[in-house]
Simulated assay, not measured.
Amino acid sequence: MSADFTSLDTLATHLRTELETKKFILLYAYNGTGKTRLSMAFKDIGKQGDTRDTLYFNAFTEDLFTWDNDLAGDSTRVLKMNAASCFFAGLEALEMESRIRPFLHRYVDFDFSIDYAQWTIRFSRDVLVGESTQTIDSIKVSRGEENLFIWCFFLAIVQLAMDGAEAYQWVKYIYIDDPISSLDEHNAIAVGNHLAQFLKRKDHSIKAVISSHHTLFFNVLWNELKEIDKSRKQFAPHFLSHSKKTGEYHLSYSGDTPFFHHLTLLQEIWRAKEAGKIYTHHFNALRSLLEKSSIFHGHKKFTVCIKHQEDDPDETLYSRLVNILSHGNYSFYDPVEMLPENKAHFEKILADFLEFYPFNPELTPESQEQETP
C-alpha cells in the first residue's frame, strides 16, 4: 500500500484521515525529507483561531527553551522558558517538578528547580568530593542531557493530557518528531521503550503520530507498538520519502517487518536497475548496502559480500571497482548516468549479491513486460 502527495498539507490531511481508524502512525524518513515541516502542517490544520488540537514535540518545541549562560558573572546559568507559549499553560498549579523527575531520573543523574516567577530552570548535580557529597548548583548540562530534560518535560505534559487535566483537554493528537537527535543508542532504546509504555494506556482517546530518521528508535517503537496492537488494526507504520525531481511525497506501508535501512537501500537500487536509470551515485548506495550486510554477518570488509569470479583469480577486480567508483564526487541532485561498461559491472555485482544472500523476493520484484497487442 502506497500513495503519492503533491504537498505536505495534503499528506498531513491524509494522516488525519488515517487516524480516524488508527490510533498510532509511525513514520520513518531520512533527514531533509520534511518531517518537521509535516508535523507543523499537521498541527496547523487543527489550529482554528484560538482553538487547537495537537500537542507536538519537534525542533520548535526544543526552541521554547533557551540558555542564559550568565556571560557577565559566569556563575548563574539558567534555561529560560518561553512564557508566551501555550505549551507551558498553567504549569505552576500542576506541580511540574514532581511530574518530570520520575521520567528524568530514568536517564540522568542531575536535578533541577523551576522558578515560575522568572520562567527559568536551574540544574544541579551531586558530586563526590573526598568522602562527602556536595551539590553543585547552576550547572550547564550537555546538549544530550538538555534534550532528555525537554523530552521528559514533554512527557509530563502528555501524561497530564492523558489524565484529562483541564489545561490540556484540547489535546486530541500527539505528534512527536525525532525526540532523540542527540542521544546514544542505549538512550534511543530506553526512550523508545518508555514512550511505548505511555502509548499502551487505554484510558484516553488521544491518538499519536511519531516520525523519526533514527533506524534503531523506529525499530524499537515498531516492535513495541506491534505488541500493543497484535491485530494491527490500530497501528500503521510507513516509510516517507520525497522526490527531488517531482517534488512529491511518497508514503509506503512498511509491511509486517520493521524497517531497516539496508532494505530500503536495496529497494532503491533495485528500482533504479529495473528502470534502467542507474547513475554514478548508485555505486555509493551499493557499497553502503554491501558494508551494512557484511557488518551484520560479523565481517570487517564489505568485499566478503562480492562473489568471487573465475576471471578474477586475485579476487580484486570487482572489489576495486566498487571501492573506486563509490569514492567519486557524485551528486544525488545532479545525477550522471553510468557508462555502459560500469553499468554492466554494477548489475553483475548486485545480481551475484542477491543470489548469495537470499533476501525476500518481494523486495526486488521483476518488472512486468508489457504485452504486445
Score class of each variant (00 low, 15 high):
Leu11Phe: 00
Leu11Tyr: 00
Ala12Asn: 05
Thr13Lys: 09
Thr13His: 11
Thr13Leu: 06
Leu15Val: 13
Thr17Trp: 12
Thr17Cys: 09
Glu18Arg: 06
Glu18Asn: 13
Glu18Ser: 15
Glu18Thr: 14
Glu18Trp: 05
Glu18Cys: 11
Leu19Val: 00
Leu19Thr: 01
Leu19Ala: 07
Leu19His: 04
Leu19Met: 03
Glu20Ser: 04
Thr21Pro: 02
Lys22Val: 01
Lys23Arg: 08
Lys23Ile: 03
Phe24Glu: 01
Ile25Ser: 03
Ile25Gly: 03
Leu26Phe: 05
Leu26Ser: 10
Leu27Val: 08
Leu27Ser: 09
Leu27Ala: 02
Leu27Ile: 08
Leu27Asn: 04
Tyr28Ala: 07
Tyr28His: 06
Tyr28Asp: 02
Ala29Asp: 08
Ala29His: 00
Ala29Gly: 03
Tyr30Lys: 11
Tyr30Ile: 14
Asn31Met: 13
Gly34Glu: 04
Gly34Trp: 05
Lys35Gly: 02
Lys35His: 05
Thr36Asp: 05
Arg37Trp: 11
Arg37Asn: 12
Leu38Lys: 12
Ser39Asn: 05
Met40Val: 14
Met40Pro: 11
Ala41Gly: 12
Phe42Tyr: 05
Phe42Lys: 08
Phe42Met: 08
Lys43Gln: 12
Lys43Cys: 14
Asp44Gln: 15
Asp44Cys: 15
Ile45Pro: 00
Ile45Arg: 14
Lys47Arg: 15
Gln48Leu: 12
Gln48Ala: 13
Gly49Ser: 00
Gly49Leu: 05
Asp50Gln: 13
Asp50Asn: 11
Asp50Glu: 06
Thr51Cys: 08
Arg52Ala: 13
Arg52Glu: 06
Thr54Cys: 12
Thr54Pro: 14
Tyr56Met: 12
Tyr56Phe: 10
Tyr56Glu: 08
Phe57Arg: 09
Phe57Leu: 09
Asn58Val: 10
Ala59Met: 10
Ala59Tyr: 13
Phe60Gln: 15
Thr61Trp: 04
Thr61Val: 09
Leu64Glu: 13
Leu64Ile: 07
Leu64Val: 04
Leu64Asp: 11
Phe65Gly: 10
Thr66Phe: 15
Thr66His: 15
Thr66Trp: 15
Asp68Leu: 13
Asp68Pro: 02
Asn69Glu: 15
Asn69Leu: 12
Asn69Lys: 12
Asp70Leu: 00
Asp70Pro: 03
Leu71Cys: 03
Leu71His: 11
Ala72Tyr: 07
Gly73Gln: 04
Gly73Arg: 01
Asp74Lys: 03
Asp74Cys: 05
Ser75Leu: 09
Thr76Met: 06
Thr76Arg: 07
Thr76Cys: 03
Thr76Gly: 06
Arg77Met: 10
Arg77Cys: 07
Val78Lys: 09
Val78Pro: 00
Val78Met: 11
Val78Gln: 13
Lys80Ser: 14
Met81Cys: 03
Asn82Phe: 06
Ala83Thr: 11
Ala83Arg: 08
Ala84Met: 09
Ala84Asp: 14
Ala84Glu: 12
Ser85Gly: 03
Ser85Ala: 05
Cys86Gln: 10
